[in-house]
Simulated assay, not measured.
Amino acid sequence: MRGGGPLIGGKKTAACPVGIALGATWNPELVHEIGQSLAREALDRGAGVLLAPTINPFRSSLNGRNFENYAEDPFLTGTLANADVQGL
C-alpha cells in the first residue's frame, strides 16, 4: 500500500517485501499471511485495487519489473499466487 508517509502528512503504511523476495522464501503460509495483512490495509484505506505482486510468470529477464513477480518457476509462482489470493 502506498502512502505519503508522515513527513508529508500521509498515513503510515506497512512495508512488505517485493514478490521476488517472497518467492525466495518458498513459504506459502508467509505469503498467505502477507495477503491477509494487505487486504486489511486496503480495506482500511478504501482501496479497491492492489497492483502488486503480479501473479503471472515473467517471460523475459530484460523486463524491468520482474521483482514484482514471485519466481520464474510456474509451479512456485502458482503455489504462492494461490496463497496470496486466498489470503486476500
Rank of each mutant, 00 (worst) to 15 (best):
67 F>M: 13
22 L>I: 02
7 L>R: 13
68 E>K: 03
33 E>V: 06
8 I>W: 03
2 R>I: 13
87 G>C: 01
60 S>N: 12
13 T>D: 04
68 E>T: 08
3 G>R: 02
3 G>T: 07
79 T>R: 14
27 N>K: 06
70 Y>P: 08
65 R>W: 10
24 A>D: 07
3 G>M: 07
65 R>D: 11
73 D>V: 03
44 D>M: 01
67 F>T: 11
35 G>E: 01
40 R>S: 12
65 R>V: 11
60 S>H: 04
85 V>E: 10
54 T>V: 15
59 R>N: 08
12 K>P: 07
37 S>I: 13
38 L>Q: 03
31 V>L: 05
66 N>C: 11
81 A>L: 01
37 S>K: 10
15 A>Y: 13
33 E>D: 15
29 E>A: 15
69 N>V: 05
2 R>Y: 14
2 R>F: 13
16 C>T: 13
33 E>R: 09
16 C>L: 15
85 V>C: 09
10 G>K: 01
65 R>Q: 09
70 Y>G: 05
56 N>E: 15
14 A>S: 13
49 V>D: 08
25 T>V: 03
77 T>K: 02
12 K>A: 15
39 A>V: 01
73 D>Q: 04
32 H>Q: 14
45 R>L: 15
7 L>Y: 08
61 S>W: 11
51 L>R: 02
65 R>Y: 08
50 L>T: 01
77 T>L: 00
20 I>G: 07
62 L>F: 10
65 R>N: 09
24 A>H: 02
85 V>H: 06
9 G>I: 06
61 S>T: 12
42 A>Y: 06
60 S>W: 02
28 P>D: 01
75 F>W: 15
40 R>G: 09
26 W>S: 00
62 L>D: 12
69 N>D: 14
19 G>C: 05
34 I>E: 02
24 A>S: 10
14 A>H: 12
20 I>E: 08
69 N>Q: 13
23 G>C: 02
79 T>F: 00
61 S>K: 14
66 N>K: 03
72 E>C: 07
56 N>W: 11
54 T>H: 08
69 N>W: 05
31 V>C: 01
77 T>D: 03
26 W>F: 15
62 L>W: 11
30 L>E: 03
53 P>C: 06
66 N>G: 11
31 V>D: 00
31 V>A: 00
8 I>S: 11
32 H>N: 14
86 Q>L: 10
12 K>N: 11
46 G>D: 04
53 P>N: 02
37 S>G: 09
79 T>M: 15
67 F>C: 13
51 L>H: 10
44 D>Q: 14
68 E>S: 06
71 A>V: 10
39 A>R: 06
25 T>L: 05
55 I>Q: 04
71 A>K: 03
52 A>V: 12
70 Y>E: 04
36 Q>N: 10
61 S>C: 09
49 V>T: 15
87 G>H: 05
75 F>D: 09
17 P>A: 15
80 L>T: 02
72 E>W: 14
82 N>V: 08
45 R>K: 12
47 A>R: 00
47 A>Y: 13
80 L>V: 01
